[in-house]
Design a protein around this nucleic acid. Structure first.
Lengths: 155, 155
DNA sequence: CAAAAACCCATGTTATACCATAAGGTATAG
DNA sequence: CTATACCTTATGGTATAACATGGGTTTTTG
């Protein structure tokens, strides 16, 4: 029995004409162990698809309920944006999910997809876009070291 | 057996001459698993129909009882507004519900309806109105990032 | 009796479950 | 140390089931 469940690594898979793509086997193992499902949506901050477990999204729903009022505009806006865009993806017996036109178009993915682990979440990128993005991130981190040590005082 | 039940995704369905519209199959699955019913009412904040499980509405009733006084005007107003408008909708063998004139008119829906998942709730929109609303929300959220991280201190 | 609502059936489309194959990696036996 | 058998994973193709939607019929209701 595992204690930790993290989406990791960078995996390149083919996307067929129907939009089917194999979910990396490590990711599938997590889904199985947690007996949950994969949920994907358009990233709010980058031109890529983002995914996580339904479990995590359920926790988010609860957090939003607790943090904002039932009738608040914030709650309305957030839930519309997040859950309106998210979609459950179950994988078939061979481990594939079928991405939708909307998601593929948004991330500009045609025949190849790059899965990038992000811990509790993961992202799916167009290969060229990911290459550029990774270079950008590395450069930025080198220039301006992140400070995890003082995270409690962080703004 | 699922652990989480979230209304998600954005689905466009036809409304026929009788006012019948297919409830998205994912939504139906939730209703079945929870052995509850769908309840719809006019949104308090937007020109759309809002729906949820009868279960959630029951929880809301409890919340209102706890948050307001039995004889208070607030409780009176809230309960009148919500439960006076809400109505149960059962779906037929093919998964369709029959929306009422009142609801359709309020949301300005004629022949096409857009279901928008909101987690524990969902909304039903006129397609053009939803398109505008989504754009508005995206702009607003991007401009002013929500801060769930510090939710415990949130106003 | 008239209008509406619930029920039933039919159809085209789409997604999903399943099968087969290929490719890569690992362990075991020669 | 190498070759072979086995296992896992990725990928392509296909058949089946599920779904949305249109139309009609019966039952309920006012």
């Amino acid at each position: 029995m595992r204690k930790t469940f993290l989406f990791m690594d960078t995996i390149i898979n083919k996307v067929d004409a129907k939009g089917r793509v194999s979910l990396p086997s490590d990711y599938r193992a997590i889904v199985k162990e947690l007996s949950t499902e994969i949920v994907c949506y358009r990233s709010l901050t980058a031109p890529c698809i983002e995914g996580c477990t339904e479990e995590l999204l359920d926790k988010l729903a609860t957090d939003i309920e607790n943090a904002t009022d039932f009738f608040s505009e914030t709650q309305d806006n957030l839930t519309n944006l997040i859950f309106g865009d998210a979609k459950r993806f179950t994988f078939d017996s061979t481990g594939r999910i079928m991405l939708t036109e909307k998601l593929l178009r948004y991330a500009n993915i045609t025949d190849t997809a790059v899965f990038v682990g992000k811990g509790r979440k993961f992202q799916i990128w167009n290969p060229e876009n990911w290459e550029k993005e990774e270079a950008r991130i590395r450069a930025e981190v080198l220039k301006n070291r992140p400070t995890l040590a003082h995270k409690t005082e962080a703004e």
